[in-house]
């Protein structure tokens, strides 16, 4: 059975800018797949390549085994939830949701029935007569979701969809999206720059940097066993040790990642000087200097917090120092 989405050596150049540079990946059917990376890393361009708004400069994008080269967006079995929602301001909510069905030539009664069912699915029943301008950000988001889902796409693309919402609503929508995906059972491809969002929602994550994929894996793999220093730093702000430091502390010459929460204050450990402290509520973040290297650690609540300028002794379990292949 072919993958829902397959990238084979895909490049997309804008002039001299390599927005997407030789990306290969496979997204399985029914998967919740996150494309994570900083802005300008190529993740949104990849999403637009799947939707059909961009064509690859080189390589091929396949959707359920079919080569999509030259296929326009309106002939693809994928639908998009846009970052700015892109609701049609001249139509009410029901007509917005039914737009795709209207264009496809379905009858008025069927359109109405399906659009109302979709609004029910996103928990906005009875909102059909309102205008997009009268809705809150979270409600617009749901309308955009219903408008895409009503088309029964085989792949749903979500472009930084939760970025515009406030923290509480964002967390609520994260859970709802995850539940919705389980319910409708279609493939979700989700673009985000928020590592917490990717870790909590996705089945698998592709970490993007400068147009390339640095690592693809489950949230646990990406977090616990980052393949590259960039992944370690971007996902969970790990301490990245260069080979010479790793050699000094572990006797192996390789890049290594050390999670801030894995470091403890212990007697007889390695000496480190406290540069600064920050109270985070559930924990306190210590900014340390060890062997000329900046190290961050998290001190659990209740522990004695050292003062800046003090020298402390730190240590970690051997298994927590994760060695990486290369830079």
């Amino acid at each position: 059975m072919p993958a829902a989405v397959e990238f084979r050596d895909v490049c997309r150049f804008f002039g001299t800018v390599r927005a997407v540079d030789r990306v290969s990946m496979e997204i399985a059917e029914g998967e919740f797949f996150a494309m994570l990376g900083p802005s300008g890393s190529g993740k949104t361009t990849c999403l637009r390549l799947i939707a059909g708004f961009e064509q690859p400069t080189h390589g091929a994008v396949r959707i359920f085994g079919q080569d999509m080269t030259g296929v326009p967006p309106y002939r693809r079995a994928v639908n998009t939830v846009f970052q700015d929602y892109a609701l049609f301001p001249h139509l009410n909510v029901l007509d917005n949701v039914a737009y795709g069905l209207m264009v496809a030539g379905r009858g008025r009664a069927e359109r109405r029935r399906e659009a109302e069912a979709a609004l029910e699915l996103v928990q906005l029943p009875g909102y059909g007569a309102r205008r997009p301008g009268e809705l809150s950000g979270g409600q617009r988001q749901r309308v955009a979701l219903a408008r895409a889902l009503v088309m029964k796409p085989r792949v749903l693309l979500l472009d930084e969809t939760l970025g515009a919402l406030d923290l509480k609503l964002r967390e609520q929508m994260q859970e709802e999206l995850k539940a919705l995906q389980r319910k409708v059972g279609i493939t979700f491809v989700f673009v985000t720059h928020d590592q917490g969002e990717a870790l909590s929602m996705a089945d698998r994550i592709a970490v993007f940097n400068e147009g390339r994929i640095e690592q693809i894996g489950t949230p646990e793999e990406v977090y616990n066993r980052p393949a590259k220093p960039f992944v370690a730093d971007f996902v969970g702000s790990s301490n990245v040790l260069p080979p010479e430091v790793t050699f000094a502390v572990a006797g192996r010459r390789a890049w290594a990642s050390l999670r801030p929460e894995a470091i403890r204050l212990v007697g007889g450990g390695r000496p480190a000087r406290v540069l600064a402290t920050a109270f985070l509520g559930a924990s306190t973040r210590l900014h340390l200097e060890m062997a000329g290297l900046d190290i961050t650690m998290l001190l659990p609540r209740g522990a004695q917090v050292p003062q800046p300028g003090e020298t402390v002794s730190i240590g970690w379990a051997d298994g927590d120092l994760h060695l990486m292949e290369s830079a």
């Binding site: 939707a51 309106y74 639908n79 846009f82 892109a86 737009y99 795709g100 895409a148």
Partner: peptide
Amino acid sequence: TSASLVEASMDLGANGFQTFRHVILPN
């Protein structure tokens, strides 16, 4: 008029002519 409106219309299955008639023209 946001450019993503045109993309949204195409994404939902409307070709260039349908997009002009149902989205661009009313706006």
